[in-house]
Every structure is written in structure tokens, then in C-alpha cells.
């Protein structure tokens, strides 16, 4: 049996995201629903999350009305489906500092946050560049950085330097430097606790938006295709993709892209009464399913 229960919890969605956002170069190939989700991990007597979503108060209305993002529900509502509260969460791994992954840190008053040092230091570097380079930090919310100050002062920010094994038992962090962002990281969960595990899951963050990033759009000739946006390097995104798939032993379905609606068909899932989906990646011994 698994050490951890793992769920992808949808907290908002974009009903019609262009496919080209999710798969580089796939222009004029229609649209797909694009969920926004974070990952809840429960086991070894602790609650952890991968990413925390965005700050609805400051710009939720803008996202809804101008960018077609709908259905946002607070962590209180979303996590209640798992019978937990945001204040119960003890550990949060931030895959990167974009607003829709690291924007809602205030909602988790008791959590320690784990972020790659490179992500933070390069954001600071980008902010100091000439205005001509503003694209490099235009999608960063200065308010998120200000919130990180509080975390650092409270001793709740752990700055990770590269790869780190067993940040929690069986959970490793892997740096995908200079890919989607400078310090993006993915989370490897060795769910049998073994160093040479037969039951590995990877939470991809924004290193992949879709399973199509792993197989391409041509079923007859599969290949990696990066996501639509890399702030740094598409090449590094492809190598990060390869590393993630190798980490799980080759079955790409074990690399979980929270932005892909297909997660809800690959894994057992259900739609809650708020219209948001919960996908159950793994269920630990003694835990109750959230989807059956």
C-alpha cells in the first residue's frame, strides 16, 4: 500500500484555453478546458501541498472577466472536500513563483514553504533589469514577493539549493533550472518509501501542462513537445520532461500535470457540487477515497 494519499484539487478553470498555450506550436487547433489545481498530499502523519493557487482578492475579478478564468473557490472550500482546513497544512512546496502557483500563501498560516533559491534570486535579478526587459517579470506579482518577506521573517520559508532528497519521507525535490522559469522544481513522491522505488509519482508543476507534452500530437510518432511558455529555455523543458518520465520508470501517466483535464480521466475522479474536480492519484492504507 502507498505511504501517501495524493489528490489533485481543482480550484478554478479556464473553459477554453487555446491548445497552443499547452502545447508549443499547436496554433489554431482549437481550445480545451484548462484546470487550475494544487496537489494535496497526506501521509506519515502530515499534510502537505504542492502549490497554493492565486490571490482571488486582488485580481480574481480581472482573471474572470478579462481572461475567462472561472469557478475559483477558496482553499477552505476546496480542501473541505478532503476533510481538512488550510490551517492543517504543514508543508507547501512551491514549484515556482508565478502568481497562480505561489499567490495564496497567506491562506496557509501554519505551513512551511519550500522554494528553490534560484527561483527567488533570479526574480530579484530580473526586477533589477532595465525596463526593456520587463517581460521577464511582468507576470510576477510584487505582492507575492512581499508576502514571501513575511514567510522569511517568520522562519517559514525554506530556500532549497538544487536537488533535495527526503524533504519529507519519500518526497524529493528536483530542480529543473532555467526551464519554464529559472528555478522551477518538480516533486518526486516515492510512495513505497524505497530509495529504488517501484511506485514513483511526479508532480510536474508547470513543467508540463498536458500529457501531450510527453507524447506530442501525432500518435503515430510520439515525441516531447514543450509547453507554450518558457521564460528561459524550451530545450531545458524537454530535458526536464525526460528526467521526470525516467524518474517514474517510463510510464508518463505517472507524471501529473495539474493543468490537464485528462488527469480526471486517467485517475479516478469526481466533480464536486462546486463544479470543481478532485482526482485521486494514490490512496494510502487506511485512508478514505474522496472520489468513490
Amino acid at each position: 500500500m502507498a505511504d501517501y494519499s495524493i489528490w489533485v484539487m481543482e480550484y478554478a478553470f479556464m473553459p477554453s484555453a487555446p491548445v497552443s498555450v499547452m502545447v508549443y506550436g499547436a496554433h489554431n487547433q482549437g481550445t480545451r478546458k484548462m484546470p487550475y489545481g494544487y496537489v494535496l498530499i497526506k501521509g506519515h502523519g502530515t499534510l502537505a501541498m504542492v502549490d497554493v493557487g492565486y490571490n482571488q482578492r486582488d485580481y480574481g475579478q480581472t482573471l474572470e472577466q478579462r481572461f475567462d478564468v472561472h469557478g475559483w473557490k477558496s482553499p477552505e472550500v476546496v480542501l473541505a472536500e478532503a476533510g481538512v482546513k488550510p490551517s492543517d497544512v504543514e508543508h507547501v512546496i512551491l514549484t515556482h513563483a508565478h502568481f497562480d502557483h505561489a499567490g495564496n500563501t497567506d491562506a496557509f498560516p501554519n505551513a512551511t514553504f519550500y522554494l528553490q533559491e534560484r527561483e527567488l534570486s533570479k526574480w530579484i535579478w530580473a526586477l533589477a533589469l532595465d525596463r526593456k526587459f520587463r517581460w521577464l517579470q511582468a507576470a510576477t506579482d510584487p505582492g507575492d514577493i512581499a508576502r514571501i518577506v513575511d514567510l522569511a521573517r517568520e522562519g517559514r520559508l525554506v530556500s532549497i539549493n538544487g536537488d533535495h532528497d527526503d524533504i519529507l519521507p519519500g518526497i524529493d525535490l528536483r530542480l529543473a533550472a532555467d526551464s519554464h522559469t529559472w528555478g522551477s522544481q518538480y516533486v518526486t513522491i516515492r510512495n513505497d518509501g524505497k530509495r529504488e522505488s517501484d511506485d514513483v509519482w511526479v508532480m510536474a508543476g508547470d513543467l508540463a501542462y498536458s500529457y501531450d507534452n510527453f507524447r506530442g500530437l501525432d500518435a503515430a510518432d510520439p515525441g516531447y513537445v514543450p509547453i507554450g511558455l518558457a521564460m528561459v529555455s524550451q530545450e531545458n523543458l524537454l530535458f526536464a520532461t525526460d528526467a521526470m518520465i525516467n524518474a517514474v520508470g517510463g510510464d508518463y501517466r505517472r507524471v501529473v500535470p495539474p493543468h490537464d483535464e485528462e488527469v480526471g480521466t486517467v485517475f479516478p475522479s469526481r466533480v464536486t457540487k462546486t463544479g470543481l474536480r478532485i482526482s485521486e492519484i494514490a490512496l494510502a492504507k487506511g485512508d478514505t477515497s474522496l472520489v468513490s
Partner: peptide, 12 residues
């Protein structure tokens, strides 16, 4: 925040 240049709102 320039959502039009962000990861998930790009092109939307």
C-alpha cells in the same frame, strides 16, 4: 500583473 504574458492566461 501582466496576465496576458503569464503562463496560464497567455493567449486567452
Amino acid at each position: 500583473v501582466a496576465f496576458g504574458q503569464s503562463c496560464c492566461a497567455a493567449h486567452a
